[in-house]
Amino acid sequence: MVEKKEDLINYLETMLKIRYFEEKVSELLGKDLIKGTSHIYIGEESVAVGAIAAIREDDYIASTHRGHGHCLAKGGELKKMMAELCGRATGYCKGRGGSMHIADVAKGNLGATGIVGSNIPVATGAALSMKMQKMDRVVLCFFGDGASNTGGFHESLNMASVWKLPVIYICENNLYGMSVSVKRALSVTDIAVRAVSYNMPGEIVDGMNVLEVKEVVAKAVRRARKGDGPSLIECKTYRYYGHSRSDPRVYRTREEEAEWKKKDPVESFKKKLLEEDVVTEEEIDNLEESIQQEVNEATEYALSSPWPSVDELTCDVFFTG
């Protein structure tokens, strides 16, 4: 499939945005300006960007605890995200959720979640809802290798298959469930083979390649939109940082990390665009500079935003009209 120049630049821009945003998040965590925890997505950018490039604006996504990339690729605003991570009133969730709960349901983001695998049933229900309302919208359900071992995964994929729901299950296999290697936690090498149990297509894709991810997801989206049911796509990828802020990465080697970084999704895509004369070095420099600027502005916005009012502590527990 031939991609338009503006789309290609757009993918690069979004991947850079995720990377720069999270580099800043990591810095702010180190300075304790962001409290709590944040799960850094760097290394996996092409999964979120490629997959979400394959859907329409009115389609849904369901995210994970490592959700900044999904949120940004779905059109999330840097300022509101950074403010949320900093616990400010101007954040996506008024500072109540932080990194693990960013959502924008009106814009099709059903939210991140702090419980591994817990959005798989939710995404399945959203797909049921679309089908029942006869809308041709699809749901992309992101989750990790660890989530594929939960009961909700099994229940949901079975249900979606039986009901032919318009949902695409996208497993980001980054090889570790916190510290435990998939080699020690999974009964299979390729999570995609689990699709056989649910009588749905299972595909493996290079999760470090944005265009490959897009192509495979687009095929599954066409199938879902036609009413032919769900698919499972396993993206082989790698998170560069530890599981969360306190992780010294003792469970993997620096050599393994270096190997994966050779396939860096941002650098390899940049190289491809340069080689194919889609962009010039200068254009990339300008793009990088402007994104860095945007991230800096978002950070200033977040850190100068007000804290939530304690008077609103118990607001919104229930809808009261």
């Binding site: 798989i120 049933p121 399945t124 229900g125 959203a126 049921l128 809802s129 949901s156």
Partner: peptide, 18 residues
């Protein structure tokens, strides 16, 4: 199916989307 987690979660997902 006998899938209580999926029943409850799918209900939540459907409820959030109309």
């Amino acid at each position: 199916a006998i899938s209580e987690a999926a029943i409850a979660g799918a209900a939540a997902g459907a409820a959030m989307t109309g």
